[in-house]
Design a protein around this nucleic acid. Structure first.
Lengths: 120, 120
DNA sequence: CTGCATCCTTGCCGATACTG
DNA sequence: CAGTATCGGCAAGGATGCAG
């Protein structure tokens, strides 16, 4: 039988989990940290067009959900390291295939858009 | 060497592909169609708290990007079938693991949030 | 260097009413 | 049944300035 599934908010972790990683910068940041810890300024260079406001906010959201850790070194000037937690590295196992898929099918999607828009 | 990657919008399909599937309802709709074609009203029942406006708009966006097809049967009253395309089914291979991951780690994420908020 | 505070713009999304 | 049209709230996000 088809159609018996109902996605109420209550039985749907997709809402609560994917909703947060669906932000504009979230997956980008996790992916940037996949090769190792990075400092605030390094992340800023890796994603040039993110504002400082969004960088700070996204990092805090990811830390809150347990994807990344934040380590402060009280040097002068101070430096802060961000790194993936075990949860964050676990998430990579499903994120990286998603990124690969996006890369492989980017062309097909762009063609579909053009065709759709042409059909008016 | 670490840190050599720079995510400019130009070299980053994540922006163009994941940005569109990151909507509030998008992945939910693709997942709903994973078992077979569904009509407009059936989708509405599957995702009870979506508005007609968002249902229509999300379906059109997904059709534009080539994930789903739209078939109109000129009966009276009219009926419309939505179904995954090959591209949409291909996307399922990376979406479903993501959904499974969300389900398995939902608890850990909620605990992380609580701990973070408690730490203030 | 690594943030936080503020203002402002944009666009997502819901509610409602109306159509073939 | 399957949409379209319009209005409005609210949150995401950008720009700028200030602080530890």
């Amino acid at each position: 039988m088809i159609g018996g599934i109902v996605f109420t908010p209550a039985n749907c972790p997709m809402r609560d989990v994917l909703g947060n990683i669906a932000g504009k910068w979230t997956t980008l940041m996790i992916h940037a940290l996949s090769e190792g810890p990075m400092r605030f300024s390094a992340l800023k260079r890796t994603i040039p067009d993110i504002s400082q406001r969004m960088l700070t906010q996204t990092l805090r959201d990811l830390q809150r959900d347990g994807y990344i850790s934040r380590t402060v070194y009280p040097t002068n000037p101070p430096s802060v390291d961000y790194a993936l937690t075990d949860l964050g590295r676990s998430f990579l196992t499903v994120l990286l295939p998603l990124v690969d898929w996006s890369t492989s099918h980017h062309g097909a999607i762009r063609e579909a858009r053009t065709a759709f828009d042409a059909a008016g």
